[in-house]
């Protein structure tokens, strides 16, 4: 304490610093144990042939990555994931934007529609996937009954290798639309209403002109943000696959996370599963970098 009296500011800083360490200590421990070590471990494991069914393991360098390049399942998985993302993202972003604009355009039943469109986002996806499986059932599913009613043939959405990705994508769109919608609603509510008034005075008479003069350019950063976020979520598709198709029929619904899960926790090939996980992280990393770049542009006025 006598030292403290000599130079109070240094003593104060030291005290604050000790306090700060106490405050961050639990998080630091958890970050090291749950994040840093596992991240390093996954990179390390991806360079081995560790297999839980086999006690011996060797350091094999980048062999796992080389193998992945020619691994048929992994290539199917990448292709399927890309197809799934390429369907779900544009459709749900467009529908979400449309829903947000329509909801915002009027005053009647705003709250009801917002909640109705948002409900799928907070619903248990495993449970709702089960419901969709019933809805899409080839013989008793209401969707196929409806198709038959208008004279179209039944589609085995989840059981035919030609369409299973599209079937899963329908469920993905069903869930992602509401999520895109609320983000667009937030973006729309941030638009200065004076801009629409200025647009009207400037002669933008139709909603079409006002949309292209004000809404679209102002929402552009939001749209980029929602698009990347929807892509990130779509890349992580897993629940519907594990519930409904387990990668089948004949690998036609293999997607990245399911393939990693299968490789690591069903076949117990930890080494090659880790290499897949590293690829998975790399894909997400690219998307997140795009996303943070676009986030920086969200504010127009300096």
């Amino acid at each position: 304490m006598s030292e403290a009296a000599k130079s109070p500011s240094i003593a104060f800083d030291a005290m604050r610093e000790r306090a700060a360490w106490w405050l961050v200590a639990p998080s630091v421990v958890l970050i090291v144990v749950l994040l840093v070590i596992p991240t390093l471990a996954i990179i390390g494991l991806s360079l081995t042939d560790l297999d839980l069914g086999n006690p011996d393991w060797n350091f094999i360098g980048v062999q796992n990555y080389v193998d992945l390049a020619s691994d048929r399942t992994f290539r199917i998985s990448i292709r399927n994931t890309a197809l799934y993302v390429a369907i779900v993202t544009p459709v749900s972003v467009t529908l979400g934007l449309g829903a947000a604009i329509l909801i915002e355009a009027g005053t009647e039943l705003r709250g009801f529609f917002r909640s109705a469109y948002f409900l799928p986002v907070v619903s248990l996806i495993v449970a709702m996937a089960t419901v969709w499986q019933y809805l899409m059932h080839p013989t008793i599913g209401p969707i196929n009954l409806l198709l038959n009613l208008v004279g179209l043939p039944s589609v085995n959405f989840l059981g035919s290798s030609d369409v299973v990705i599209y079937g899963l994508a329908i469920i993905g769109i069903w869930q992602a639309t509401g999520f895109a919608m609320v983000l667009f609603l937030a973006g729309l509510s941030a638009i200065d209403p004076q801009l629409y008034q200025a647009a009207e005075i400037d002669g933008a008479k139709s909603w079409w002109d006002r949309f292209w003069l004000v809404t679209w350019p102002i929402l552009a950063p939001t749209t980029l943000f929602v698009t990347t976020l929807t892509m990130i979520n779509a890349v992580k598709v897993f629940e519907t696959v594990t519930t409904l198709t387990q990668g089948g029929p004949s690998k036609s619904s293999e997607v990245l996370l399911w393939t990693i899960y299968e490789e690591g926790f069903i076949y117990l090939h930890l080494g090659s599963a880790s290499a897949m996980a590293v690829v998975f992280i790399a894909v997400l990393l690219v998307l997140i970098i795009i996303q943070t770049r676009t986030l920086d542009k969200r504010v127009h006025y300096g």
């Binding site: 996954i42 996980a277 998975f280 997400l284």
Partner: peptide, 22 residues
């Protein structure tokens, strides 16, 4: 520490599940 937190934002639980499982 802040750097580690940013790293954490990038790495989903799915990716590190293998060492955590082990």
């Amino acid at each position: 520490l802040f750097g580690c937190i940013i790293l954490g934002l990038l790495v989903p639980i799915h990716a590190v599940s293998i060492p955590l499982y082990a």
